[in-house]
């Protein structure tokens, strides 16, 4: 796990295990995942589908789907284990201390209320302020997320806004109670590339302005290369590699990370044949024994299907789970 010497971590996840309980039994979707984020840092949590990245984020918020449950580990926020909080304490935590934004802003915005009233509601949920004061705060937050003409936009309904503007409103709402941790789950996946860079630039600016800790969940290595301070790579519910962004891209060590980097177009000259990773992502209900990546790994030896590789420091502050490194 990355230890930040300069500052105490705001969030520290230790050995998190989360499972779905289905008619076929327990399916582990987050398996011994650990990470920590200090104030003002942006952690990129990267993975493909089924890697457990979204369930990790939802575990922190304790907003898991009905059939899912945290079965082990700790989620320490400012030293307090969120798993030990009552539902009421957790409810106060969400929004006030930890906020989350999602891929589809439209699913989180209520179509029949103006965006201003929704931001104001979020403010009044956590702080004792008058209606007028909450509305003023809503306008101020719209200005913070750089929506032009906030005094007018505050009375718009979500459908009157474009996708990029809606995501700005979501960010305004998420930050309206000045949380210390922002969890952003694929916040730009539904957006066009020019709008995506606007939103990511905004998140980075706000992160610096408010000393926010940010957990950015994404499938896009390019995004974390440009925006993250630290990176955690997940594959099939487990942490494969973890380090600072600079270290990860100059010295990728886990064969999965290396294969992933090799398979991206543009990363090694035009018209070069891509080095595809053979096979398919394992079914979480039926993971391969040993290292989860071993059936697709070019470096796999027999032991890889027998030994669960521990996450170990292979270089200073660079953690890798692979017995071949």
């Amino acid at each position: 796990m990355i230890r930040c010497n300069l500052m105490q971590p705001l969030l520290e996840i230790r050995d998190l295990q989360t499972s779905f309980f289905t008619e076929h039994g327990e399916v582990r979707v987050v398996d011994h995942v650990g990470l920590s984020i200090a104030p003002g840092r942006l952690m990129g949590l990267v993975g493909e589908s089924g890697s457990g990245k979204t369930i990790t984020a939802l575990s922190i918020m304790r907003l898991l789907p009905e059939r899912a449950r945290i079965v082990g580990g700790q989620i320490l926020f400012e030293g307090r284990d969120l798993r030990q909080l009552s539902e009421e304490q957790m409810r106060r935590m969400r929004g006030a201390s930890i906020a989350m934004i999602f891929q589809e802003p439209m699913t989180s915005l209520n179509p029949v209320f103006t965006v201003g009233s929704q931001i104001a509601e979020a403010v009044r949920l956590h702080q004792k302020v008058s209606r007028a004061e909450a509305r003023k705060r809503a306008i101020e937050m719209l200005r913070v997320v750089k929506i032009a003409d906030p005094e007018r936009r505050v009375d718009d309904y979500p459908h009157q806004l474009s996708g990029g503007m809606r995501q700005r409103v979501m960010i305004a709402m998420a930050l309206s109670c000045r949380p210390k941790l922002l969890i952003a789950d694929e916040p730009t996946t539904a957006l066009d590339v020019t709008i995506q860079s606007q939103i990511l630039d905004l998140i980075r600016e706000l992160q610096q302005q408010f000393q926010l800790a940010v957990l950015l969940v994404t499938h896009d290595l390019g995004i974390v290369a440009e925006y993250a301070d630290d990176i955690t790579i997940l594959y099939a519910s487990r942490v494969m590699e973890q380090s600072s962004a600079g270290e990860l891209f100059s010295n990728p060590l886990n064969p999965y990370t290396r294969a992933l980097l090799q398979s991206i177009p543009g990363a090694g000259g035009r018209h070069r044949r891509l080095q595809a990773i053979p096979g398919t992502i394992p079914n979480p209900a039926d993971p391969p024994p040993g290292c989860r990546f071993n059936p697709r790994c070019p470096m796999a030896i027999e032991d890889c299907s027998r030994i669960d590789p521990p996450l170990e420091a292979k270089r200073p502050n660079h953690y890798v789970s692979c017995i071949r490194v």
């Binding site: 493909e48 589908s49 499938h219 290595l221 294969a259 992933l260 398979s263 991206i264 177009p265 044949r273 891509l274 080095q275 595809a276 990773i277 053979p278 398919t280 992502i281 697709r296």
Partner: peptide, 14 residues
């Protein structure tokens, strides 16, 4: 498609 699968399909198309 997932990143690790994308490259397979691009190579196949080529």
């Amino acid at each position: 498609l997932d990143v690790s699968i994308q490259a397979q399909i691009i190579n196949l198309l080529q």
